[in-house]
């Protein structure tokens, strides 16, 4: 009988759940059959999907890769895994983008930020209350490691400028602009477009407040240059940055990156 065990198709002689567990992972204490946790033994049928988990155990690199490969369309995982993405800024945009890409199983992230985690960041940035005062790049790296320890993370703690930007992101296949300050955004775009016109850039502008999320879009500005946001709503008194719209923009950016890595047009309707 063929069943899918922990996302891998296997042939087994086991006809019940407990027999399967005893044969493959006797220490498993959480048993999931076709998406539902079960406690009692039950017969298995052809094509059933079984996941066996030992609580608290961390899968090794090969197991993690098998899980992600199975989750993604064949061929997709390999391309994501071999990619390096640079993220300039680890605030509301950058922290969420990094987490989305890490969950996808991205090979390498280069994160850069000069800031530390402040209480006011917690309304939208992907940090925890026990990380207040830590450099954002250190806190983010720690959070990414908890999600997927096999993503390689290089961190730059400092201010990015015309001088260091090309070096910090020298290895990046794609760069994400995730700054807060508009002059920094402009500086990065000019710098990267001059230094690496052949390497895609995904920038963002306009995601403050709680207006409709439907005005946040991804558009192509030029060759290898994409812009996310509503392009008008600045962070200001009475129109602060809030988790939902910042998250929408961040995930537009992450999705644009994913599509670029998979050879799909970020603003087209093809699936790569």
């Amino acid at each position: 009988m063929n069943i899918r065990l922990n996302e891998q198709l296997i042939a087994t002689t086991a006809t019940t759940l407990f027999a399967l567990r005893d044969a493959h992972q006797p220490d498993a204490d959480v048993l999931i059959v076709n998406g539902f946790p079960v406690r009692a033994d039950q017969p298995l049928g052809e094509g059933d999907q079984v996941v066996l988990i030992k609580r608290g155990a961390v899968p090794d690199a090969a197991e993690m890769e098998a899980l992600l490969t199975a989750r993604h369309t064949p061929g997709v995982h390999q391309r994501i895994k071999s990619a390096t993405v640079g993220i300039a800024g680890a605030g509301g945009l950058g922290s969420a983008i990094a987490i989305a890409l890490a969950r996808c199983g991205i090979g390498r992230l280069i994160i850069a930020d000069f800031d530390v985690v402040e209480p006011s960041n917690l309304n939208r940035q992907q940090y925890f209350i026990d990380q207040l005062g830590l450099p954002k790049v250190d806190a983010l790296r720690a959070n990414l490691q908890r999600i997927n320890p096999f993503v390689k993370v290089a961190a730059f703690y400092g201010r990015l400028d015309h001088e260091n930007l090309p070096q910090v992101f020298a290895m990046a296949d794609v760069l994400v602009e995730a700054f807060d300050a508009p002059d920094q955004k402009a500086m990065l775009v000019e710098n990267w477009r001059k230094a690496h016109p052949e390497r895609p850039l995904v920038a963002a502008s306009g995601m403050a407040g709680f207006g409709t999320a439907n005005t946040i879009a991804t558009r192509r500005v030029g060759e290898n240059f994409y812009l996310v946001g509503d392009e008008t709503t600045a962070a200001a008194a009475g129109c602060g940055l809030m988790a939902p719209r910042v998250g929408v923009a961040a995930h537009h950016q992450a999705n644009a990156v994913l599509r670029l890595l998979l050879g799909a047009d970020p603003v087209g309707d093809n699936h790569g």
Partner: peptide
């Protein structure tokens, strides 16, 4: 000419 005018927030 393509001019992108950035607004603050991120």
């Amino acid at each position: 000419l393509e001019i992108i005018h950035f607004v603050g927030g991120g």
